Simulated assay, not measured.
Amino acid sequence: MDSPPRLVATDLDGTLVRQDRAVSARTADVLAQITAEGTPVVLVTGRPVRWLAQVYDQLHAPLPAICANGAVVYDPDTDQVLRADPLAPDLLTEVARRLRAAVPDAVFAVEVDDGRRLRHDAGWPVRWDAADPTIRVFDSPDDLAALPAVKLLVRASERDPDAFLAIVSEALGDVAEATHSSYSGLAEISAAGVTKAAGLAWFCERHGIDPREVLAFGDMPNDVPMLTWAGRAVAVANAHPAVREIADDVTLSNDDDGVAAYLEKLFVSH
């Protein structure tokens, strides 16, 4: 990238957001300065739409977001989903059938209503968001495929995430996309062809921005398609080895405001 980027894309958890779920004042200030000077910043995350408020509350202004690993493009100014590419009910049925055969102890959850609601098996571990009214248990096992889902989540006890993803990917073949962004046995499944790269490409094409003009930050395997697609890929220091391997550059960790530090140097130097 020989000139300043025309667009900055960044992952959230593990990249922009610190381990305590905070966005630092430094980071918020840098993003506000960049956008005020005319360079759009897009949040590209595995999070559902309903989890964006936690980040927006810490920024000077909400930023456009590509959620659910590329399945949802969201405009916070109008609270509208501009594009959604969910798993259809028949595909959810087939994916669940394959995974139950390959992983008998698997439990499932689905992000429905463009990621505004979560439905899950009774055995699904609901943790810090247990009181969230948008989350509830399936009324019956058939509820898993009752509605299109922008993401299917599957867990099976505590497993090595890379090894578990390999099992899931082998079971699915080419019928759906599987990735992970977790340090436990959690796989994230999207419709075939749906990745962070695909969602960001749709957004950039809409705004006349070439991939070579995009600077992207990430930390986990679900970021690899986006980082490979972008003109410059930057890994944070705490990134998964698969991300560091394909990155063009490495910045400080998320807890050390690596994204902000990199952007400060880049934009100040120009």
Rank of each mutant, 00 (worst) to 15 (best):
P4M: 06
V8D: 00
L12N: 09
D13Q: 07
D13Y: 04
G14H: 04
L16A: 01
V17S: 07
A22D: 13
V23I: 15
V23Y: 09
R26I: 03
L31S: 04
Q33V: 09
E37M: 10
L43C: 02
R47K: 10
P48G: 13
D57T: 02
H60G: 15
A61Y: 10
P64Q: 01
A65P: 04
N69D: 15
T78M: 02
A84C: 14
A84F: 14
L87G: 03
D90Y: 06
L92E: 02
R98C: 09
D105A: 09
D105N: 14
A109L: 10
E111F: 12
L118E: 04
A122C: 02
W124P: 00
W124F: 11
P125I: 01
W128D: 11
W128I: 11
A130F: 10
A130S: 13
D132R: 13
P133R: 08
P133I: 07
V137Y: 01
V137W: 11
F138H: 09
D139F: 00
S140T: 01
P141R: 14
D142L: 12
L144I: 01
A145Y: 11
V150R: 07
V150S: 05
L152I: 00
R159E: 13
A163R: 11
A166K: 13
V168F: 07
V168P: 09
S169C: 02
G173C: 01
E177W: 13
A178M: 09
A178G: 10
S181Q: 03
S184Q: 12
F203Y: 15
E205R: 14
I209V: 15
P211D: 00
R212K: 05
E213P: 00
E213K: 00
V214Y: 08
A216H: 11
M220G: 09
M220D: 00
P221E: 08
N222S: 02
N222H: 12
V224R: 05
L227W: 10
W229N: 01
W229H: 08
A230L: 00
R232C: 08
A233N: 03
N238I: 06
N238S: 03
P241L: 11
P241C: 11
E245V: 00
A247P: 12
D248P: 12
V250Q: 12
T251N: 01
D256L: 15
A260S: 12
L263R: 11
K265D: 15
L266D: 02
